[in-house]
């Protein structure tokens, strides 16, 4: 994927670029909002990673300008401001996701991939399929290899999120945010327990385990 990193802290953007290039992406860095806006207008990118506070033109201003142009490229906001109101203004400006500094590289990479994927599947889907796992979003049914799997409502939501991001790493924070709607990290391994329950339902009795743990990152649903 082609990514634009707009960040005035050059050390941070350099580290980000190194990590994301390692993960197989093509990165371009811009040092402030105006340079970022010019780059985003000149070329096509799959995802824009935009720092919120920058000299000259800040992230909010840059994204608002882009959205006014009709540019719908997914934007991930990076910010040291993590309060609820800060997140709300960021998302209202047109950002698609919000990551509070400091963050782990794995978290950043997972979110960037999730954003790019969301764009690919822009159309409304009623059926999700990852490998031999099928989810009927209208009938609320899940089958693996034709065999029906009975899930609790929250397990269904969890699996839906994992299937929508099939093949990608999703972090525990992402799951807590997107599936439960919480923006804090519990001290206990609550998410792991939910995942292992889901795993026991979809992988039990099958030779190959689909729901995998990615060390240092989170989980991945493999086709």
């Amino acid at each position: 994927m082609r990514l634009l990193i707009v960040e005035d802290d050059l050390q941070a953007s350099g580290a980000m670029a190194t990590g994301l290039t390692e993960a197989g992406h093509d990165c371009l860095c811009a040092a402030d909002g105006e340079a970022g806006l010019a780059a985003a207008r000149a070329e096509h990118f799959d995802v824009l990673i935009v720092d919120r506070m920058m000299p000259r033109l800040d992230g909010v201003g840059m994204v608002e300008s882009l959205r006014k142009d009709g540019d719908q490229t997914p934007v991930l906001f990076l910010s040291a401001l993590g309060e609820i109101t800060d997140r709300v203004t960021g998302l209202r400006a047109g950002a698609d996701d919000y990551l509070v500094k400091p963050y782990a590289l794995a978290e950043l990479a997972a979110r960037v991939e999730a954003l790019a994927r969301r764009r690919e599947t822009g159309s409304v889907q009623t059926l999700l399929r990852v490998g031999d796992l099928e989810m009927d979003l209208i009938g609320r049914q899940v089958r693996r290899d034709g065999k029906a799997i009975d899930l609790q409502p929250r397990e269904f939501q969890l699996l839906e999120f994992l299937m929508r991001h099939g093949g990608q790493s999703v972090t525990r924070t992402m799951l807590l945010e997107k599936v439960w709607g919480y923006h804090f990290d519990p001290q206990t391994n609550v998410i792991d327990v939910h995942i292992s329950r889901l795993r026991s339902k979809i992988d039990k009795g099958f030779e190959r385990a689909m729901l995998q743990t990615v060390r240092g990152a989170g989980y991945r649903l493999e086709a």
């Binding site: 919480y182 519990p186 327990v193 939910h194 329950r197």
Partner: peptide
């Protein structure tokens, strides 16, 4: 959120 953890 905590139910399964307690059960475990």
């Amino acid at each position: 959120l905590y139910g399964p953890l307690c059960e475990d």
